[in-house]
Design a protein around this nucleic acid. Structure first.
Lengths: 147, 147
DNA sequence: CTAGGAGCTAGAGTCGGCTCTAGATCAAGC
DNA sequence: GCTTGATCTAGAGCCGACTCTAGCTCCTAG
């Protein structure tokens, strides 16, 4: 039931390099065991935790924050409120990032809409004529790129 | 109506360093003019474009992609479809990122929910008792961190 | 006229998160 | 026994996007 680093890499989608790096960074709750000759041995549970880690990472949580969380967990019972706080702080950051991206999406869609309408009408070139109303609309007439 | 680099920095929220860097990277559609003694002069329009740039950047568009877009615009009329493609590609990436973040949010909220319920009941410590059902629920009993 | 702040250039440094290299050991199939 | 591929350690390298430094010039207020 023990897994080699290569197997864990395959299952977690992380590279063997990244796994050694994560270990050095203290992201494993349990110390990684070794064979008599020094090779790493992992549990299936480690893979589950790595899946969570990957989610946290891809939502922008820095390794340092994940380490903090793991350190609390490693310390044992009694600091659940602190762990909850960490999770909630990150939840808030993810929400904020989603809000930010949604705003950016509006800006992009505004520009896309203008271009698309003009291209569909086959009038794209007029976007470049400063005297054409749509040039002002894209904000790109005469190299004015802002919308 | 001309602006110094310091004024542009203040209005755009970018540092003067970043502005010089952006110029070197070719992110300005129009060449930045200079005074007789070599100081940069900007337009209000540059500030507008920088606002768009900032949105694109904060939604994860790399400087290289912005430069591509600017290069097309600088080249003049005739490549609107390509510019539209660039914008749409980025739009798709932003959408994908939002989807990803939303998924991560689910994971986080799942864990938050478990912790919160336990902490509210004042039973947080039991999350650490492997024989307690909630320990399995958090996945963190016995240092099992995955949910 | 002078002091302090803003600007200039070229280039070095930073940071996070890996990725890769070198040189050695280990494990398994032929 | 030998080869091939997986693993080991320590440490260097990389990438993007800035940020900062040094050493200089320039502008303006007192």
């Amino acid at each position: 039931m023990d897994l080699s680093i290569g197997e864990v890499a395959e299952r977690s989608g992380l590279s063997v390099h990244a796994l050694r790096f994560y270990e050095k960074e203290g992201l494993f709750a349990n110390p990684v065991r070794r064979t008599s000759t020094g090779r790493r041995l992992y549990h299936a549970e480690d893979v589950e935790w790595l899946a969570v880690c990957t989610k946290l990472r891809s939502s922008g949580m820095p390794l340092a924050a994940i380490r903090q969380y793991v350190e609390l967990a490693r310390r044992g019972a009694g600091n659940e409120t602190q762990r909850l706080d960490l999770l909630r702080a990150h939840e808030e950051q993810v929400l904020e990032k989603i809000r930010e991206l949604t705003e950016c999406l509006d800006v992009i869609r505004h520009k896309v809409g203008i271009y698309q309408a003009a291209v569909e009408r086959g009038e794209a070139d007029r976007l470049w004529n400063p005297s054409h109303p749509d040039a002002a609309a894209t904000g790109e007439g005469c190299h004015r790129l802002a919308a």
